[in-house]
């Protein structure tokens, strides 16, 4: 790099404020707080997308109001049924999921209970069967919806072949093998959700896609079911990870707090790691 000028010792660095215009106030389309006439910091009424929160609290379900928060409108009867059913179906990733085990580790260590969910949800953000997989899954489904699901599945299976891969393989985000085979639980959940009237074109497309994958011991994964259902309910891809975190949070916290009243010995502590690293103690 001899033709590049070496750094002159006298190089000048100056720092000045960029003439950017920042907002005077935070804006939101979600929540309105009407100030009390006595104290401008105190709200006398709150509205979620125009609906009084007290009225919502007395007449609508938790899942309806979650839907309202993100979609701006309340769900109709069929949408409400599908969304509520999805949320119950994935209320708990189960005690073997890495995020649940993170919750358990946090719990058994007696962290503050308020720390359990942030810990667990951070791990749940992963791209392998976590919320990090549902956004790409939803984008992938929307991008491929016009293709034949059968042809695409065959093409992908042909492309990936049956190589000597170790572990699981996701042929597309949200779809693949689960411990080397079909994820029976996710398939059963998808089947049940598909029977509901609000199940739409994305779920139906993904079901056809999964059927072909089944021939290669692959199919729906939890993340694929969540992505396809949220797509049919009109949720944007960027919203999907948070919705998946919200629906799985109860199970994660339940397992974490269950361990919080138990001693450290309540969880396995395996033997020392078997390791192949050689000693470097006598190296120069």
């Amino acid at each position: 790099m001899s033709d590049l000028e070496p750094l002159p010792a006298s190089r000048k660095f100056t720092v000045s404020r960029r003439p950017e215009k920042f907002a005077d106030r935070i804006t939101t389309r979600i929540w309105l707080e009407e100030p009390s006439s006595e104290n401008p910091y105190v709200a006398k009424a709150s509205y979620c997308h125009g609906y009084n929160i007290l009225e919502l609290a007395s007449k609508r379900s938790f899942s309806d109001v979650i839907y309202l928060l993100f979609r701006g409108e309340l769900p109709n009867e069929h949408e409400a049924e599908l969304f509520a059913s999805l949320m119950v179906s994935f209320i708990n990733p189960g005690p073997r999921h890495a995020a649940t085990r993170a919750a358990m580790n946090a719990g058994v260590g007696k962290t503050d209970p308020s720390n359990i969910l942030p810990v667990a949800l951070s791990i749940f953000g992963g791209e392998h069967l976590g919320s990090g997989e549902v956004e790409p899954a939803l984008r992938w489904l929307r991008k491929n919806l016009k293709k034949s699901p059968q042809d695409l599945a065959r093409e992908l299976l042909h492309t990936v072949g049956s190589s000597d891969r170790e572990g699981d393989f996701h042929v597309a985000p949200g779809f693949g093998s689960f411990y080397g085979s079909i994820d029976e639980m996710s398939s059963a959940i998808a089947e049940q959700l598909l029977r509901l009237p609000a199940a739409g074109p994305v779920m139906k497309w993904a079901a056809e896609f999964s059927k072909i994958l089944n021939t290669a011991q692959m199919g729906w994964l939890s993340t694929g079911v969540v992505a396809a259902t949220l797509a049919d309910l009109g949720f944007q891809p960027r919203v999907a990870p948070g919705i998946f975190q919200i629906m799985s949070a109860p199970g994660l916290f339940a397992h974490g707090i269950e361990l919080a009243s138990k001693p450290l010995t309540a969880m396995p502590f395996p033997g020392a790691a078997t390791t192949s690293s050689r000693s470097r103690r006598n190296e120069g």
Partner: peptide, 16 residues
């Protein structure tokens, strides 16, 4: 922040 420090730009209050 006071309530008025938030600039609400959503739909006005409506009946459920």
């Amino acid at each position: 922040m006071r309530c008025e420090d938030i600039d609400y730009q959503g739909v006005p209050p409506r009946e459920l």
